[in-house]
């Protein structure tokens, strides 16, 4: 019974660690890169068409 409780605390701790890392990383990215670059993706048609035209699949 105690083992499960302990494992439960460990689960909370690991979750907090992972979630914390993601939030910090997201904040770091927001600082280091310009918003225009982050929002620069477009629906992937252009690349696809290039491949189709040249017959290059990779």
């Amino acid at each position: 019974m105690d083992a499960w409780q302990l494992a439960g605390y460990a689960a909370w701790a690991i979750s907090a660690l992972l979630l914390g890392w993601m939030v910090l990383d997201a904040i770091r990215v927001n600082r280091e890169y310009s918003e225009d670059l982050l929002l620069s993706s477009r629906e992937g048609y252009d690349e696809l068409l290039e491949h189709e035209r040249t017959g290059d699949r990779r």
Binding site: G8, W12, M22
Partner: peptide
Amino acid sequence: PWVVLTIAVLAFLNY
């Protein structure tokens, strides 16, 4: 804690 852990690990993987 297990519900949160499941979602946290998978979100991390996805991230």
